[in-house]
């Protein structure tokens, strides 16, 4: 299963913006309204939808959307 499609859907919902298109290099600075509060919403929504759990270490070291996607991918059953 591809990660980018469901993840884009989550981003569009959380940030209430239908025009968001994800890319690996994207960071919080590129998305309007991506602050520490919405970040928590984003993470919790991702964890619920994909039924996964991020570790504390992962959460503290995500540099961009690419890191986030890699981590989700690694947790999904292959």
């Amino acid at each position: 299963m591809g990660v980018i499609e469901p993840l884009t859907k989550i981003f569009r919902e959380v940030f209430d913006d239908e025009d968001i298109t994800l890319s690996g290099e994207m960071t919080a600075d590129d998305v309007d309204g991506w602050d520490s509060l919405s970040h928590v919403n984003l993470i919790v929504t991702i964890e619920t939808r994909f039924n996964i759990k991020f570790t504390q270490k992962e959460l503290l070291t995500f540099r961009n959307v690419g890191d986030l996607m890699d981590s989700i991918q690694s947790k999904l059953p292959s």
Partner: peptide, 11 residues
């Protein structure tokens, strides 16, 4: 950040 992430389920 570590605290916020640990308590993320309390939104």
């Amino acid at each position: 950040k570590p605290l916020q992430m640990s308590w993320r389920n309390w939104k």
